[in-house]
């Protein structure tokens, strides 16, 4: 565990906490893409199947359980408890266009053609594009609440910090995983436009509003 990895995980955890608190405190999930949250639930379910087969560390087990549980909790809040506030008119991204190509790619490019490994690879590919419905929703409405922007910034930073972790591990431990690295790069690049707006607008106290 190096500092980049730890900061990445904490950033990821922070993003989830921000999102849950935002929904819970405002009793509303307006501006949040349920499609992205469904994708994240699929991502964590398929990635952490090794919870039942392999023990890594208490930290690892704890975080995996938290990520799986909170992803389902978020989906529950959006589609059941606060369903009336869900922005379904704007959340129209077709997630099958992400799920199926990611799965096909996982069947073709993986480290080992076994069920668990293909599902892990699928989760990595799917995570890299899972934020697209959320970014699509923001671009459709043309704006995002500050709290939603903070959520997106923390969530985007997490894989960016993992990139630094992988660079560190490549040199320090001679360890690398090309599938994770390339997908992580794609994931981080997708946030770049948002990062720019976040730094130039939200951090200066302005609302994130896209140019008309």
């Amino acid at each position: 565990m190096n500092i980049f990895r730890l900061l990445g995980d904490l950033s990821h955890l922070l993003a989830i906490i921000i999102l849950l608190l935002k929904i819970w405190n405002t009793r509303s999930c307006a501006g949040i893409s349920g499609k992205s949250q469904i994708l994240f639930a699929i991502v964590y379910t398929t990635r952490y199947l090794d919870l039942i087969t392999t023990y890594i560390s208490a930290y690892n087990t704890f975080m995996k359980i938290i990520f799986i549980a909170t992803s389902y909790a978020t989906v529950f809040l959006m589609y059941v408890k606060f369903k009336a506030t869900y922005d379904h008119n704007h959340d129209t991204f077709r997630i099958e266009f992400l799920i199926l190509p990611a799965f096909t790619l996982a069947l073709l490019i993986n480290h080992e053609f076994t069920l668990v490994e293909v599902l892990w690879t699928w989760s990595i590919y799917l995570e890299s594009v899972a934020i697209l419905p959320q970014l699509f929703l923001v671009s459709k409405t043309g704006e995002a609440e500050s709290i939603t922007s903070h959520y997106l910034f923390a969530l985007g930073s997490y894989r960016g910090l993992y990139l630094l972790n992988w660079e560190y591990r490549y040199y320090a431990e001679d360890h690398y995983d090309l599938i994770a690295i390339v997908a992580g790069l794609v994931q981080t690049v997708l946030y770049c436009d948002f990062f720019y707006l976040y730094i130039t607008k939200v951090l200066k106290g302005k609302k994130l509003q896209l140019p008309a």
């Binding site: 990895r5 090794d50 890594i56 690892n60 995996k64 990520f67 490994e117 972790n165 360890h175 690398y176």
Partner: peptide
């Protein structure tokens, strides 16, 4: 070194 399993990252 490329480890397929186990995965130690999240």
């Amino acid at each position: 070194k490329l480890d397929v399993q186990p995965k130690d990252e999240l």
